[in-house]
Design a protein around this nucleic acid. Sequence first.
DNA 1: GAATATTAGTTTCAATTGCAACTATGTCAA
DNA 2: TTGACATAGTTGCAATTGAAACTAATATTC
Lengths: 156, 156
Amino acid sequence: MRHPDPESDFDLTDFFPYQVRIYYRAITDAISRIYKSMFDLSVSEWRVMAVLSSKNVLSASQIVARSSMTKVNVSRAIKSLKAQGLLKRDINGDDKRFAALRLTEQGVEVFNTLLPHILLLEEQMFKGFTPAERADLIAMMARVRRNLESPDSLDK
Amino acid sequence: MRHPDPESDFDLTDFFPYQVRIYYRAITDAISRIYKSMFDLSVSEWRVMAVLSSKNVLSASQIVARSSMTKVNVSRAIKSLKAQGLLKRDINGDDKRFAALRLTEQGVEVFNTLLPHILLLEEQMFKGFTPAERADLIAMMARVRRNLESPDSLDK
DNA sequence: GAATATTAGTTTCAATTGCAACTATGTCAA
DNA sequence: TTGACATAGTTGCAATTGAAACTAATATTC
């Protein structure tokens, strides 16, 4: 007794946001397997390290702005990394509300150990892609995001 | 004092898996806003309903297989939907281990109320895309996934 | 047929995550 | 100068999530 409503022919696996979900999960699972297995780092911890790796000193807010994470998660990651000796926190002399955060030598070493593996995996994700195709994929993802962020698009 | 290691020029925001993350988050947040605000449904609940909408009766395992969720999350969503009167559970006569799950009339009504809104949003994500571009995006996401799922790609 | 293994699905336990509340510091207006 | 308000970041509480353990039913082996 199949429901006669044509909209009930909806198929979740053809539904774009669902497809994006499994795409994202596949990528995230592959990447996180690396830093989890090598150094038992969480996603948040990896991200904080990644942000700090290319900057000398940042405040927590600056990490928040650069990492697509909430201040809560950043704060927790900082706490954990500090406990692991991978990150150092000083007080900003100009304004005591701001932390001055940087990777320790050990933190830099961990990051530089992980990075080749992670960059290799990133390349393997694009096996069989031309540079143009790769750029197209990235550009199109950005376009979808812009459509979602522009108020016009959410008229109903 | 910038670290001299060229790999420390790593920029998280150019890192593909990170870009996928924010893309995924943007899409998921937009979609879940609909079913959350209209019917206070969780992602898992929506997915179970979506799977059941196009099938008459399924077991929990079949929902698991079609929804990219674990049996735990499916079980919890089923329990919750049942409590909300949106889903009915019977025992499968052939094998008592299997549930026979279906949407109630109310559940079908909720789904059919949500669906137009959700499909409209899906279309709006693709504003400005030609059909060919849309198909390309989906195909390329699938290719990345296949690269990750194929053992050859994960050589190191 | 009985013992054991496997399967379907639920529940428990622990970890993670997000919202709200909180503390410390700084800014601004009166 | 003082009090109200804002900001940076932390912590508490509750909800969510995932691994493991569990129960009930069925399949397999001897």
